[in-house]
């Protein structure tokens, strides 16, 4: 496995672990009682905002730790720039990720139309946000392994 393949793989795994751990941490904090209270909306708002922050911090830490481990284990220096192939793969990854997220966004509007509980919209948005993240990492891994 090359540097980019390893990095995409680590990113994929860490995305899944972080999201799983975060959901497990937040689940017990879900407010009891009225389903569509201000408290519930505050919960979902903080869920998304904190998750975004956690993912940014985790991504930075992950990147630093990965580079250190890569240097120690292989004795090689990580590429310091992105060349034309990296950029093409990045674009394909972004396209697929964006497509999944937009699909999720549109599906999330469904519960509003058919008068389902509002939290269903948040759940769909969050799940598709996660799937779009995984899709992006998986697309990168796929193209680095199989070619462009």
């Amino acid at each position: 496995m090359t540097y980019q393949e390893k990095k995409s793989f680590v990113s994929l795994i860490s995305t899944i672990i972080i999201f799983g751990a975060y959901c497990a941490y937040m689940y017990p904090q879900y407010p009891d009682g009225v389903q569509e209270s201000t408290e519930t909306f505050r919960f979902w708002g903080s869920f998304v905002l904190i998750l975004t922050l956690v993912q940014i911090v985790a991504h930075i830490v992950n990147s630093i730790v990965f580079n250190i481990i890569f240097r120690i284990t292989t004795g090689e220096k990580e590429p310091s720039f992105a060349d034309e192939m990296d950029k093409i793969i990045e674009l394909k990854s972004f396209r697929n990720s964006f497509f999944v997220f937009v699909l999720g966004f549109l599906l999330a509007m469904g519960p509003l139309v058919i008068e389902q509980p509002l939290q269903l919209m948040f759940v769909i948005l969050i799940i598709f946000g996660f799937i779009s993240d995984v899709t992006g990492s998986f697309t990168k891994l796929y193209h680095y392994r199989k070619g462009v």
Binding site: T2, Q4, P79, D83, E84, M85, D86, Y144, G147
Partner: peptide
């Protein structure tokens, strides 16, 4: 040629068509 080793690997395997410039 100003690319990463990964790109040369992909080129040799026939997994990537380079730009005309490359």
């Amino acid at each position: 040629v100003g690319v990463t080793r990964q790109t040369i690997v992909a080129l040799e395997k026939g997994n990537y068509s380079p730009s005309l410039e490359l």
